[in-house]
Simulated scan of single mutants.
Amino acid sequence: MKIAIFTDTYYPDINGVARTLKHFTSYLEKQNISYKVFAPNSDSTEYISSNIRRFKSWSFFLYPECRLALPNMFQLKAELEAFSPDIIHVATPFNMGLCGIYLAKKLAIPLVASYHTDFDHYLQFYELQLLSHILWKYMKWFHKPCKKIFVPSHETLTQLTLHGFANLEIWPHGVDCELFHPYYGNEAIRKQHGVSRKYVLTFVGRLAPEKDIKTLMAVANALPAEINEQVQWLIVGDGPLKAEMEAQSPANMTFTGYLTGEALAEIYSASDLFVFPSPTETFGNVVIEALASGTPAITANSGGVKNIIKHGVTGFLCETGNAVEFTDAIIKLISNDCLRKKFGSEGRNYALTQNWDTIFDHLLWQYQSVLEGTNFQKFA
């Protein structure tokens, strides 16, 4: 099988789509499966591969971490024909995704897609709700030619079904439990980040409205003095709200910027709680990474995250935007070491069952079902 992937973001970009696709292409390399990624160029020269075809691009003004490429279609068509893929997978609904759909039709190549981002939910955080109808109309048009549309959670599948999408399949995300684990030297990590207080509370993600940073800051500023004196916040990430957050932040909040790999894994491991109020996640990669690290998560009861967290077992699910619920959940777990450690252990055990290779094996079976016109049992 030869696979062509069209995406508007790819490693070393720091977002869930790019990281998931990098896991997938690493798996394909291990399996000696031929693939080619067509993606915008990157400011970084960290990762260069003959399997990646980059195109000149510009930052998207609403979401600078995503780039819009404008490839020469004649050249792109020639390169795709030379590669001669059996299947095309489009991962994003922007320019490169549109190129993938056009060429799949033009060259009669079977087409599948994956749905990673809840753009409709984003609109309310940018006061653009009036565009919701137009957005859904476009998204349905974009995905209509696809033989299968892979979604990361049951919650997303339900949402798209209600909007009239067809050919939906669950493609959950996994976690690297060899990288993300609870066994790093936490004292050295705490010293590295200047943590002197007893408990570490961590947030990881883009510092942007759709992550409900407003609720995060409300919680950080609402903790009772006796709890606050024992807590150090580590905010991992960057984005348009960073300067505003720093201006509003309490004295016990530290901003690390973006972290990846072992540096990120160490932060999770050294954390006592992971606090994540974002209601817009189709899955929640950072949540399962926290669980793999033995760190209980307190999250919004919304989106794909609610399919990861087992309330009262691996963490707490709180009403979206309800700072009081988040604050109460933090106090409950900070005040009960035994319960917190039990949650952490249960979270680690759950993460160990979410193996990337098994998940990608099933994705290849789904590809094969498209090529052969047969149906395979859905991934549960």
Rank of each mutant, 00 (worst) to 15 (best):
W136Q: 11
W136Y: 15
W136E: 10
K137Y: 15
K137D: 15
K137P: 13
Y138D: 02
Y138C: 07
Y138G: 00
Y138V: 05
M139E: 15
K140S: 12
K140H: 11
K140N: 14
K140E: 14
W141Y: 15
F142W: 08
F142M: 00
H143I: 12
H143A: 06
H143G: 02
H143S: 08
H143W: 02
H143K: 05
P145C: 04
P145D: 04
P145A: 04
P145H: 05
C146Y: 06
C146H: 05
C146E: 06
K147Q: 09
K147A: 10
K147E: 12
K148P: 04
K148C: 02
K148N: 07
I149W: 02
F150W: 02
F150C: 05
V151M: 01
V151E: 02
V151F: 00
V151P: 06
V151T: 06
P152R: 03
P152G: 03
S153M: 00
S153Y: 01
S153C: 00
S153E: 00
S153I: 03
H154C: 08
H154L: 13
E155R: 08
E155K: 07
E155D: 14
T156I: 05
T156N: 04
T156E: 03
L157C: 10
L157V: 12
L157M: 14
T158N: 14
T158Y: 10
T158D: 15
L160H: 09
T161G: 11
T161N: 13
T161S: 11
L162F: 12
L162C: 11
H163L: 03
H163S: 09
H163D: 13
G164P: 01
G164H: 05
G164M: 01
G164F: 02
G164K: 10
F165G: 01
F165R: 06
F165A: 00
F165S: 04
A166K: 15
A166W: 08
A166E: 14
A166M: 12
N167W: 01
N167H: 03
L168Q: 01
L168W: 00
L168C: 02
L168S: 00
E169S: 14
E169G: 11
E169V: 12
E169C: 11
I170A: 09
I170R: 13
I170E: 13
I170G: 09
W171G: 04
W171Y: 08
W171R: 06
W171V: 04
P172G: 02
P172L: 08
H173S: 11
H173A: 10
H173W: 10
G174Q: 03
G174N: 07
G174E: 07
G174P: 06
V175P: 08
V175S: 06
D176M: 03
D176R: 02
D176Y: 09
C177H: 11
C177Y: 07
C177W: 05
C177T: 13
E178R: 13
E178N: 13
L179F: 03
F180V: 03
F180K: 04
F180Q: 02
H181L: 03
